[in-house]
Amino acid sequence: SKDTIRINGIDIDVKDLHEEWKRLVEEALKRGDEELAIELLERALKE
């Protein structure tokens, strides 16, 4: 798994994120759902 995830052309540092969150965000991006990916990231970062 990578340490960054690219959303809207912005590389976001996710190395401190739990693997499960990372996977969910990557799944959302694979489906092209950037809005969901951002929402998941925000939730993950609050934890």
Rank of each mutant, 00 (worst) to 15 (best):
D3V: 10
A28V: 03
L45E: 05
K30G: 11
K46T: 09
L41R: 01
E26D: 08
A37S: 01
L40K: 00
G32D: 04
K2N: 13
R6V: 10
I5H: 03
K15V: 05
L24R: 12
E19S: 11
A44M: 10
I10L: 11
T4Y: 11
L41N: 00
V14N: 01
A28M: 05
S1A: 11
E27W: 09
I7M: 04
L40Y: 09
E35W: 12
K22S: 05
R31G: 08
E27A: 13
V14L: 09
D33F: 08
A28L: 07
L29P: 00
L40I: 13
A37T: 02
A28K: 00
E47W: 06
V25Y: 03
K2W: 15
D13K: 05
L40Q: 01
R43F: 09
L24M: 11
D16G: 14
L24A: 11
E27F: 05
L40T: 04
K46Y: 09
I10A: 07
A37D: 00
L24K: 11
E20H: 15
V14A: 05
I12F: 15
R31S: 08
D33V: 02
E34H: 13
E19L: 07
L41Q: 00
T4D: 03
K46L: 14
K2P: 15
E34L: 12
R43A: 07
G9F: 04
L36I: 05
D16N: 14
D16I: 08
L29I: 10
A37R: 00
L40D: 00
D11A: 08
L45R: 14
E42D: 10
I5C: 02
R6G: 03
E27I: 07
I10P: 01
E19I: 12
K22W: 09
L24P: 02
I7R: 01
L17H: 01
G32Y: 03
D3G: 06
K15G: 13
V14E: 02
A44H: 05
L17V: 09
R43P: 00
T4G: 03
E20L: 13
L45I: 10
E35T: 14
E34T: 14
D13W: 12
E26P: 00
K2M: 13
E19Q: 12
H18L: 11
L29R: 02
D13Q: 07
W21M: 08
E35V: 14
K2C: 06
D33M: 10
L45C: 08
L24T: 02
L17C: 04
D13S: 12
A37I: 04
N8K: 09
E42K: 14
V25P: 00
D3S: 07
V14F: 08
L40G: 00
E26K: 15
I38Y: 13
L45D: 04
K15T: 14
G9P: 01
E19M: 10
L24F: 04
R31F: 09
A37K: 00
L24D: 03
I12A: 02
R23Q: 08
I7V: 11
N8M: 08
I10S: 05
E19P: 15
E19H: 14
K22A: 05
E27C: 14
D11M: 07
K46D: 07
I12Y: 15
N8Q: 09
L41I: 13
A28E: 00
E35D: 12
H18F: 07
L29T: 02
A44P: 00
I38G: 07
G32V: 01
R6A: 06
I38H: 08
E47K: 05
G32F: 04
R6H: 10
V14S: 03
W21N: 02
E20I: 14
R43I: 09
K30R: 14
I38F: 13
E35C: 11
D3T: 09
I10K: 12
A44R: 01
K15W: 08
E20F: 15
D13Y: 12
D16R: 08
E47H: 09
E20P: 14
A44V: 04
R43Y: 08
D16K: 10
K22R: 15
I5V: 11
I10Y: 11
K46N: 10
S1I: 13
E47G: 10
N8L: 07
K30F: 14
E42T: 12
L40W: 05
R6L: 07
E26R: 15
E19G: 10
E47N: 10
I12T: 04
I38D: 02
L29S: 01
E19N: 09
W21C: 04
E20S: 14
K2G: 14
L36V: 06
D16V: 07
E26N: 14
L36T: 08
V25M: 11
T4L: 08
V25G: 00
N8E: 04
E26Q: 14
I7Q: 02
K15E: 06
N8R: 11
G32N: 06
R23P: 02
G32R: 04
D11G: 03
E26F: 15
E42V: 10
L17N: 01
H18N: 13
K30A: 14
K2S: 14
L29W: 09
T4C: 07
A37E: 00
E35S: 12
E42G: 09
